[in-house]
Design a binder for these strands. Structure first.
Length: 493
RNA sequence: CGGGGUGUAGCGUAGCCCGGUAUCGCGCCACAUUUGGGAUGUGGAGGUCGUAGGUUCGAAUCCUGCCACCCCGACCA
């Protein structure tokens, strides 16, 4: 383990890449564009999964699993859907290998060509809707509220750990409804679930909004999203929820008998959040010393580091440490007592800071004597000595963890507020994007042409049309044409 | 996929222009002294120099193909 992380101010993306590796979150794999998620990183993902899964169940969804492979013909049944994904699909063409003639390895057996090629799912709408056709006959079968946890593959050119990998893990919810209103309600509900999760668990403030036509999911009528801002001023889409209209129902002929005896196409939604959330989590809070994790997602919330000379002293400290550990655990706090003799305390301090453990409790002979412990916060990097006879440690720690959770959110929130700026002239707009970054709130004439032109000129895209934006007449930042409200622009991941 | 760069021990590197089998630091192993912010000393292990060819008496070094990674463009959760 070498010392020192690159500085964010000097090279943000180098800092990110190094942090992901050094903090043991993930590493590159032998397969291009794919990553190995290491145990520590995966623990964080598991915590995210657990909470999201709970929220999905709470809103009436159940989990199921659909196949990894999609027949090629399925993908092309919904026109804009294929168009959106065709360029990044992995295709299975054969089902067998054989020994090569020179005996030096195996080759694809040309005899074993698949009659219909299979696509490795880039998303599952098509298989799922082809299945829903059989599941749905009547209004009594609706709504159908299904989620799946899965991996998907999108053959990306440029990849980055967690932010954009060829294979990634995610969940995709797919629901079917009897009415348009209900489907839209579902879409909005799931966007809100994501927003609540991001804010309450990831301590990540997000903007809820609707995507412009340009940024919309391939095959959707409307895409709702949550957008977050990273410390380098770039935006990151943290979750999306799509109102699919009747597009997939029509493509896969999914109709239901209405109460009134009619036959109608069902209304669909789909929504997803991926391991990209890990990237958002890392980039939103961490600093030059390493990861900063919100307590609610930290695999280890508290680490106890003993400081001692000799076995006898370690023994005495251990007794006390184990007492504390037991009382914290009783309160549902995850604690680790690091009594390894192979590393010195200073080394451990640096290590746990790198890994973002929210609280560190250090105990040495002096503490033993005074009945104190030293408590260090990861978020503020401050330390204090507390007297165990004056406080109850479990309450003290759990309050502090809550305080850290709040503080991390607050810091990110203030950052975003400071980094969201209104622009009313083109010059201001360009200047903000170039020199300040963050969200730029500006008027837009609503056309795709203008959006694309702005993207060409500034590399900024419309992140979303905020749900809660106020009606305000103005004129488009580029064309000067009339507009009824501001949208958020930013350069994005 | 286009333009640029890099690839040498687990990690980071020197050597490459000017061919002669590889430098240094971290890490690793052993022992000793250490332990309140990444300890110190001594000894030791570890490399077909990304890969496949070519040139040469001889290639980390020169040439060609391929692969991977990084930066910049086009695409995306």
């Amino acid at each position: 383990m070498s010392k020192g992380l690159p500085k964010r101010s000097e090279d943000y993306s180098l800092w990110y890449n190094e942090l992901v590796k050094r903090a043991d979150l993930a590493e590159n794999s032998p397969v291009r564009g794919c990553m190995v998620i290491k145990p520590y990183g995966y623990s964080i993902w598991e915590k995210m999964q657990a909470e999201l899964d709970r929220m999905f169940k709470e809103t009436g969804h159940t989990n199921a699993y659909f196949p990894l492979f999609i027949p090629k013909s399925y993908l092309s049944k919904e026109a804009s859907h294929v168009e959106g994904f065709a360029k990044e699909c992995a295709v299975v063409t054969h089902y067998r290998l054989k020994n090569s003639d020179d005996g030096r390895g195996v080759i694809v057996d040309p005899e074993a060509k698949l009659e219909e090629e299979l696509i490795v799912r880039p998303t599952s709408e098509t298989v799922i809707w082809s299945t829903y056709k059989n599941w749905i006959q009547s209004y009594r079968d609706l709504p159908l509220l299904v989620n799946q946890w899965a991996n998907v593959v999108r053959w990306e050119m440029r990849t980055r750990l967690f932010l954009r990998t060829a294979e990634f893990l995610w969940q995709e919810g797919h629901t079917a409804h009897a009415s348009k209103e209900e489907a839209i309600e579902e879409t909005v509900q799931m966007m809100n679930v994501y927003a609540t999760f991001a804010e309450n668990f990831m301590a990540l403030p997000v903007v809820r909004g609707i995507k412009s036509a340009n940024e919309r999911f391939a095959g959707a009528e409307d895409t709702y999203c949550i957008e977050a801002l990273m410390q380098d001023g770039k935006a990151l889409q943290a979750g999306t929820s799509h109102f699919l209209g009747q597009n997939f129902a029509k493509a896969f002929d999914v109709k239901f008998a209405t109460k009134e005896g009619g036959l109608e196409y069902v209304w669909g939604t789909s929504w997803g959040a991926s391991t990209r959330l890990m990237g958002a989590l890392i980039m939103a809070h961490s600093d030059d010393n390493g990861l900063v994790l919100p307590p609610k997602l930290a695999p280890i919330q508290v680490v106890i580091v003993p400081i001692y000379k000799g076995d006898e002293e370690l023994e005495r400290i251990s007794v006390k440490a184990k007492e504390i550990m037991a009382s914290l655990r009783a309160k549902g706090i995850s604690v680790q007592f690091d009594n390894r003799d192979t590393h010195k305390p200073g080394w451990k301090f640096a290590e746990y800071e790198l890994k973002g453990v929210p609280l560190r409790i250090a105990m040495g002979p002096r503490d033993l004597e005074n009945n104190t412990v030293e408590i260090a916060r990861r978020d503020t990097l401050t330390k204090e000595s507390v007297n165990l006879s004056e406080i109850s440690i479990d309450k003290y720690v759990s309050d502090l963890l809550e305080e850290i959770q709040r503080n991390i959110f607050q810091k990110a929130f203030e950052f975003r507020e400071n980094m969201t700026t209104e622009a009313d002239t083109w010059q201001e707009f360009e200047d903000l994007l170039e020199n300040k970054g963050g969200f730029v709130s500006a008027h837009w004439d609503g056309t795709t042409e203008t959006e694309e032109r702005i993207k060409e000129l500034t590399k900024a895209t419309i992140r979303c049309i905020p749900i809660d934006r106020k009606e305000e007449s103005g004129s488009c930042i580029l064309t000067g044409k009339p507009s009824t409200g501001r949208v958020l622009f930013a350069r994005a991941y």
